[in-house]
Design a protein around this nucleic acid. Structure first.
Length: 284
DNA sequence: TCCGGCACCTGTACGC
DNA sequence: TGCGTACAGGTGCCGG
């Protein structure tokens, strides 16, 4: 499941291979892949032909190709989206949703997405950010991330700390896996009310998040299966370093207590019952 | 306006 | 073997 470290790993690979190249051909194989592009598939591909990729950028889990004339090709990988750089002659995978060929030849870019939660769209760039994601907050690795402003908005919320971390309009790039990992590092229960978090605890939580993101980036991201791969089709290795996610019944790496898995927000949360006890007045 | 719940999707694992 | 069900979860939309 691509979160910030996985998307950043992919962004770096795309930037290395695609900046400066001009799109010669584009094709969409499934309308759902461009459902957020208002003009439909024909408009999407037609407006891409002849455009040159100037940069590959990211905010949270969104990434985009900055094109000529302040236009961006915006992408979200959803649950299972992949960008792959392969030779045009290589066989098409089952879930190929779109492909882009370049005027200078191979490799071509393919967008593959099994569960179709991901998608592509064109959007005008306003102040270097696609207009359609202006509501997405800066992520914690972004120089624009303002810790004091985050703390103010965080404590104004009437919700629990994990719900807040997953709210991309408050802080972007955090998904279920890294939320659980950061909460474990900061010794916080997911249902701790944000209003009860002190400034010092908030700093500790953000430091934990930064640390887990950086460690995951060094490992090339987290892969549980073949659904997350970098642009060369290779998996990341951070799953071997996870402290709580997916470790129900196994000993906490800090205190040895068995990790528990609990349903929360229609998904699973993992925590150490000793290091992350239920708070006095939880916000479930 | 803010918050929580749910639909959207497909492959895999598991029980019967 | 084959069928049904649960599960994985990011985003946007809707209702309270």
């Amino acid at each position: 499941m691509p979160e910030l470290p996985e998307v950043e790993t992919i962004r770096r690979g795309l930037a290395r291979h695609l900046v400066g190249r001009r799109i010669g051909y584009a094709e969409v194989f499934h309308p759902r892949a461009v459902r957020r592009h208002s003009g439909g598939a024909a408009d999407f591909t037609g407006r891409l032909i002849g455009r040159r990729i100037q940069a590959v950028s990211r905010r949270g889990k969104y990434l985009w190709f900055a094109l000529d004339s302040d236009l961006a090709l915006l992408a979200h990988l959803g649950m299972s989206g992949q960008f792959l750089l392969v030779d045009a002659a290589s066989p098409s995978p089952k879930h190929l949703r779109a492909r882009f060929a370049f005027t200078d030849g191979d490799p071509e870019l393919r967008f593959v997405d099994q569960r179709t939660f991901g998608g592509l769209a064109l959007a005008p760039l306003i102040a270097d950010v696609p207009a359609s994601i202006s509501h997405i907050a800066p992520d914690i690795l972004d120089v624009a991330f303002d810790e004091a402003e985050f703390y103010r908005r965080f404590t104004e919320r009437r919700t629990g700390v994990k719900r807040a971390l997953l709210d991309q309009t408050l802080i972007s790039g955090v998904g279920n896996i890294y939320a659980d990992e950061a909460l474990w590092r900061a010794r916080l229960h997911y249902a701790t009310p944000t209003a009860d978090i002190s400034a010092a605890t908030c700093r500790r939580l953000l430091a934990a998040l930064r640390a887990v993101f950086r460690a995951a980036l060094r490992a090339g991201g987290t892969s549980f299966d073949a659904l997350y791969v970098n642009v060369n089709g290779q998996s990341g290795f951070f799953d071997r370093s996870l402290a709580v996610y997916g470790r129900a019944g196994q000993p906490c790496r800090r205190c040895g207590t068995a990790i528990v898995r609990e349903p929360f927000m229609n998904r699973s949360s993992f925590r150490c019952p000793a290091c992350q006890p239920v708070p006095r007045r939880p916000h479930w």
